[in-house]
Simulated assay, not measured.
Amino acid sequence: MTDLSDFPVAKRWPAEHPDRLQLYSAPTPNGVKVSIVLEELGLPYEAHYVDIGKDETWTPEFLSLNPNGKIPSVIDPDGQGGKPLALFESGAILLYLAEKTGKFLPADPALRYETIQWVFFQMAAIGPIFGQLGFFHKFAGREIADKRPLERYRVESRRLVGVLDGRLKERTWIMGDDYTIADISMLGWVRNLIGFYDARELVGFDDFPAVAAWLERGLARPAVQRGIVIPTRP
């Protein structure tokens, strides 16, 4: 049986199946990237809900896995060389799982890097900017009298949706006919933008039909439907 005793996080969130990949996460746009790809891949895994509302990511056990105190993180008991491997940062986890299984990342070197650049686009732009828009539009930031920050993130969010729309015109997926980790990285964020953040009208989302159609296709996938609610909130 796989021994995870060297990982303090496994003491706080004990594994019922230590031979399976362990996911420590919550159903946020960053978290669901990993649950979606795991569902798409059909890999056996065990999901542990980490309550970010109770600051569980700042406990010593979680920080031992991710010193940045953010979800998602994973432990793969069958990592490189057959040894357990711990990883944080959702983009790195997507790349690792795609390379481990040979799925959702093109084998052709040029197409592989083209896919990775769109994953980085999500990590560097879509995620941070949409998240700031959500803060200033829906959460505590909306109480700030100076609306320049909100306007800054509104304009930039709309621009980024436009970049994505331009890429998706006459394409089924970001890489054309093939669904990849680039799509998986962004579906939860675009869903959140017009759903949880309630910013559909704010950014003029309906002006971007290619993105809207792509989002509908993505959310129709059974693995995506399962992944966006994993781990289940108690």
Results as ranks from 00 to 15, higher is better:
111 L>I: 00
95 L>T: 07
5 S>I: 03
75 I>V: 10
10 A>W: 04
234 P>D: 08
124 A>K: 04
232 T>D: 09
157 S>R: 03
100 K>A: 08
230 I>K: 03
156 E>C: 01
165 D>F: 03
114 E>M: 07
151 E>N: 14
147 K>G: 09
27 P>Q: 12
39 E>S: 10
115 T>R: 00
119 V>C: 04
129 I>V: 15
91 G>W: 03
23 L>H: 07
221 R>L: 12
144 I>G: 07
159 R>W: 02
85 L>F: 03
8 P>N: 12
167 R>C: 10
190 V>L: 11
67 P>V: 09
120 F>L: 14
172 T>M: 11
166 G>K: 12
137 H>P: 01
198 D>R: 14
16 E>C: 08
110 A>P: 01
158 R>F: 06
140 A>E: 14
174 I>Y: 00
154 R>I: 02
138 K>F: 10
169 K>I: 06
211 V>G: 02
72 P>Q: 09
139 F>N: 12
146 D>G: 06
7 F>V: 12
101 T>V: 09
94 L>W: 00
147 K>W: 06
198 D>W: 08
208 F>R: 00
40 E>H: 08
47 A>H: 07
180 T>H: 06
159 R>A: 01
194 I>N: 06
198 D>Q: 15
23 L>T: 01
71 I>S: 00
196 F>P: 00
225 Q>R: 15
155 V>S: 15
48 H>G: 08
218 G>E: 01
232 T>A: 15
14 P>N: 08
138 K>A: 15
208 F>H: 10
56 E>P: 05
19 D>K: 09
192 N>A: 15
148 R>I: 06
135 F>I: 02
185 S>Q: 02
171 R>D: 12
57 T>Y: 07
189 W>I: 05
143 E>A: 15
179 Y>F: 14
119 V>L: 14
180 T>G: 01
181 I>A: 00
234 P>N: 09
99 E>M: 11
182 A>P: 02
45 Y>K: 10
18 P>D: 08
15 A>F: 02
107 A>K: 13
71 I>K: 00
123 M>L: 14
189 W>G: 04
41 L>V: 07
67 P>E: 11
8 P>C: 15
119 V>N: 09
159 R>Q: 11
36 I>L: 11
